[in-house]
């Protein structure tokens, strides 16, 4: 019986393909892309102010609302934070990834890999609240500054307008620290993978042809690791763009995109505006990827 089924299938390769690929494809098309399309559609509807009901008519009015000064501020603030977090993570991740990929023994590599991904095993909320405590006014960071009698430095940092605040946990700096920590593994792993694929003989060949280590880094290692950096930055950038827990727990009262979406679709029931806000990060990411491609990030793939 089983033989007959397998013979039947063997003679119909298209049927096998359909059976294997069908379910995930349907899931992908309906649930995954379908919800994105629903989102896109909703962003072209508008909320009738008076009745508080969504009017299902095509309009660009909702998108127009995004361009008020306060909403533009939300986009700039969020994109700026995402960029800062991405740059910081890339700078921290690269040396670590390079060490793990090229110098650590196979045994140490396994342990380091576990250490890097270990934080992802625990709840994201717990880690955000841990940072809230660490950065709080009476927290360990300010205690540390005081113990070293350099609390004036902390006060000076917190007094910087627009990134400072009354304490680290209530300032954009604190958010930045928490974001950079939380997304770091998403930057290390792709860079490490890219570097592992660079054979040692390429680095030896570069040195052999007269390149000093710094030149080998610039001409060989960096270009070949660049796709990994871009892959990592897509994670750190888009995760920061969409997050609403960290800004809510750690920031000041100024909104980020995630919070705006949360507020509009929740309390005010303005689904169209929430959808339009969500399209913001999509557009920003598209622009980012186009620029990355222009810079040759995907040439070595």
């Amino acid at each position: 019986m089983l033989t007959r089924v397998s013979t039947y299938l063997y003679q119909r390769p298209r049927l096998i393909l359909f059976l294997l690929l069908g379910p995930p494809m349907i899931y992908f098309l309906v649930v995954y892309l379908g919800s994105l399309i629903a989102l896109l559609l909703n962003s072209f509807y508008y909320l009738e102010e008076f009745t508080g009901l969504v009017v299902r008519e095509f309009t660009l009015e909702t998108y127009g609302e995004l361009f008020t000064p306060s909403n533009l501020g939300i986009f700039l603030r969020t994109a700026g934070m995402a960029a800062a977090v991405t740059v910081a993570d890339a700078l921290i991740a690269f040396p670590l990834a390079y060490y793990i990929a090229k110098f650590a023994s196979p045994r140490a590599r396994t342990w380091l890999y576990i250490a890097v991904t270990l934080p992802l095993w625990s709840s994201y909320l717990v880690r955000v609240y841990a940072w809230k405590l660490i950065l709080a006014k009476e927290g360990i960071v300010s205690w540390f500054f005081e113990a070293l009698r350099i609390d004036f430095a902390l006060d000076w940092i917190l007094s910087i307008p627009s990134i400072g605040g009354s304490s680290l946990s209530l300032s954009p700096i604190g958010m930045f620290i928490a974001f950079a920590y939380i997304w770091l593994p998403y930057m290390i792993v792709p860079i490490q993978t890219a570097l592992e694929r660079v054979p040692k003989s390429l680095l030896e060949a570069s040195g052999d042809l007269g390149a000093k280590p710094a030149q080998t880094f610039r001409k060989i290692i960096l270009p070949l690791a660049f796709p990994g950096v871009v892959a990592g930055s897509i994670f750190t950038f888009s995760l920061t763009l969409g997050d609403f827990i960290v800004p809510q727990s750690l920031g000041n009262s100024r909104y980020f995109i995630g919070q705006a979406v949360y507020a509009h679709q929740g309390t005010s029931g303005n689904i169209p505006l929430a959808a339009a806000f969500t399209m913001g990060p999509v557009v920003i990411m598209l622009a980012y990827l186009l620029i990355a491609r222009k810079l040759g990030a995907f040439d070595a793939l």
Binding site: P199, A205, S206, G207, L209, A211
Partner: peptide, 30 residues
Amino acid sequence: YERDVNTVFQDYALFPHMTVGENVAYGLMI
């Protein structure tokens, strides 16, 4: 990089992100 010696590697070790010309001229470019 301070030895006047050059190597042809077993796996060739050509730089995949450069053209043939850039590979060959690498030593001069450096």
